[in-house]
Design a protein around this nucleic acid. Sequence first.
DNA 1: AATGAATGAGCGTTCATTCAT
DNA 2: GATGAATGAACGCTCATTCAT
Lengths: 223, 223, 223, 223
Amino acid sequence: MNEHSFIRTKQVSRRSLIETKGKTPEKYLRILEAAVKVFAKQGFHQSTVSQIAKEAGVADGTIYLYFKNKDDILVQFFSYKAKQVFTRFREDVDKADNSISKLRNLVRRHLEEFQRDKDMAAVYQTMVYPDCPLVKEQRKAMSKMYLDIISEIIEKGQEEGTLRKDLYLGLVKRFILGAVDSVINTWLNSGRKYDLVPMADPLIDLFIRGIGNTEEKQVAGSR
Amino acid sequence: MNEHSFIRTKQVSRRSLIETKGKTPEKYLRILEAAVKVFAKQGFHQSTVSQIAKEAGVADGTIYLYFKNKDDILVQFFSYKAKQVFTRFREDVDKADNSISKLRNLVRRHLEEFQRDKDMAAVYQTMVYPDCPLVKEQRKAMSKMYLDIISEIIEKGQEEGTLRKDLYLGLVKRFILGAVDSVINTWLNSGRKYDLVPMADPLIDLFIRGIGNTEEKQVAGSR
Amino acid sequence: MNEHSFIRTKQVSRRSLIETKGKTPEKYLRILEAAVKVFAKQGFHQSTVSQIAKEAGVADGTIYLYFKNKDDILVQFFSYKAKQVFTRFREDVDKADNSISKLRNLVRRHLEEFQRDKDMAAVYQTMVYPDCPLVKEQRKAMSKMYLDIISEIIEKGQEEGTLRKDLYLGLVKRFILGAVDSVINTWLNSGRKYDLVPMADPLIDLFIRGIGNTEEKQVAGSR
Amino acid sequence: MNEHSFIRTKQVSRRSLIETKGKTPEKYLRILEAAVKVFAKQGFHQSTVSQIAKEAGVADGTIYLYFKNKDDILVQFFSYKAKQVFTRFREDVDKADNSISKLRNLVRRHLEEFQRDKDMAAVYQTMVYPDCPLVKEQRKAMSKMYLDIISEIIEKGQEEGTLRKDLYLGLVKRFILGAVDSVINTWLNSGRKYDLVPMADPLIDLFIRGIGNTEEKQVAGSR
DNA sequence: AATGAATGAGCGTTCATTCAT
DNA sequence: GATGAATGAACGCTCATTCAT
């Protein structure tokens, strides 16, 4: 696909040292893509190494020349994918000149990327509560990266004056990520029949304005 | 859909009919609790039936007197748990007299329940992308119930005039659930070190008012 | 006659001593009949003690008050059944006044009894190569009883002059039993759709006359 | 019916296609032979896959590289064996020039083969009432092949005039097979102490001439 | 006597991983 | 590097048998 854009700086794990020049062998990527395809269809646990090998057109043993073990395939996939995706997030965020546009661009890009790569999207969900500690850590790291971008945008918005200053930042960023994830989950569970990207604007609207009716006095009961 | 409803009053599966007085045999509950404890710690797939049996203090075979198979333990757990929890959700929602209070009560109760039963909370996450179709269906059914409550509240709020009328309901309800889930996930991943319930009010505030700075608009209508 | 050999008059095995007066409790028979019904339908190995208990309307544990173990059910069934059946064989054989009629009566009665009690017939086949040594022994004993009757008839026929004197008795008796068994097997495998008894006369005809054409000179090549 | 024909030239099931030259891998045969040995000694149900693996000198899992499951071992064994044996039957039948010789050759060969391969003979009995439908079907197919050969011989004999024309063919063929089987069973049950092959001629004599005393009729026509 | 919940040894099968070629 | 046959630990599940009631 867009193999050109991806530059892995160091795939150390335990791979043979041959590909030292940073030349990712084509077989490595083939396995990665095959794995995600298989994982997406059947879930991580239901997928066997043999199936992945078959899908990739290599022998079972070959997998272990490139990956430490089955878990490592997942880990490496997201090492590879996250870099691509976050680069794009960053680009789109930087492109906008105010924080609301930045947020809109981030969310839109997020939905675009997940819609474009449905297998990745599905596998990403699989990772929510992974058994393997490494995968767990990685998932955390990715969340953190995302949350950091949001934080940055929000702080900027507060400086600009477009966003409320009395925000509990730790909460707000999770609130936004959670909402986006939820929309993606729904889409995945629905069989991905509809278009995801158009949800971006209504979502942003909710983030910014909330659901409360500001035209009237709030009744805000406290229970 | 709801035929498998997790709110089964009588769990029959394969169990003898002894529990005629509605008294669920204590061994059944012991296994259920043991299972959830084990699942929470190691994840569903990494847990073995033997471990559960050991934790429950029964023989392996005994499990199969009460449960059809390993998956069924999960299914029955949520049949049992969801009944309890949703009853409480309903009570707290009904207790409030306006929709914002209802929403606040729902979210607060949600956080309370998950904080109270951390194992349940953790296992609930395990279910996000389950392999077993029954579990998947059940998870869907539970989500639907939750989303329906939210819908009901929102519609009421629109009638009251406290909530915006121009809301895309299908999006809003997922937006709210997603945000709450996200907060819970973060808490779980953090090792559950902090108190979850106090997040309810700031969350509600975000739902209602959004993150946008409305004072600016009211005062100057900038941008 | 020989019934005493394997037709244990007193089922001692390990049964409670209550039924000392030879009064076979009705529950004992109920289990026996249930067992054969289940065995016939599913085969011995595929049948569980629970299924038998259910069919008999007793508790699983009750089976063990009457039978040492699962194998013992089979053993006792044939102890019980063989006595009945062989008594009838004996009657019909004695009824005839010449050996050919005796043989005809034996075979006809054999087919009648097996047709009447299809479950027994099916289970008897199950026993051909039993795993349990006791069952094996019993099956052997039953075969022997049958073969002894045939022997007796043949010897009588030879005395009468109706049967060839140059017969290898050990072979002839197996030849007859085997042929009858084969006819019964075919019937069982066919789903028992047709009437078994009418096969008796043609069979006897084959036994007596053979398949050779006596009207012409035999060509009897020797290879 | 014959789609599952046990005369499969290439056993593919799940095995890799290595054996391209028709060279069945020796491990495959080793397992087959080990299995039959174990089955013969303990019966199919009492035999475990582990025992077979041990006997064959391979790991348990290796069995499943060559066989779909435990049942499949039995199925494949007879696919393999029946091909050999029936080829020999056919040869010996064709060798003879009249039907009585053909029958004699068939029966003699049958006894020879079963005597030669006692394990096969024993396992063949195991199959009489198999639990696995595939095995059942296979057993049926083998019986049918045998019965068809007999039919063919008998019809030829009737044309020749050496065999009676008033024969119920469906009965006669089973009568012959049953008698041979019975002789083999007896031999197996006896511990295979004696020589089976010499029974062929007396058996044929019985088939042809029957047990009736025809001289009496010819001489005096008594009774 | 009768029950049936409880047991736990035992089995078939899977599959991640290794290693000789 | 690449292969894929071989491995064997591990697991879910069954069911004959026991025993407290």
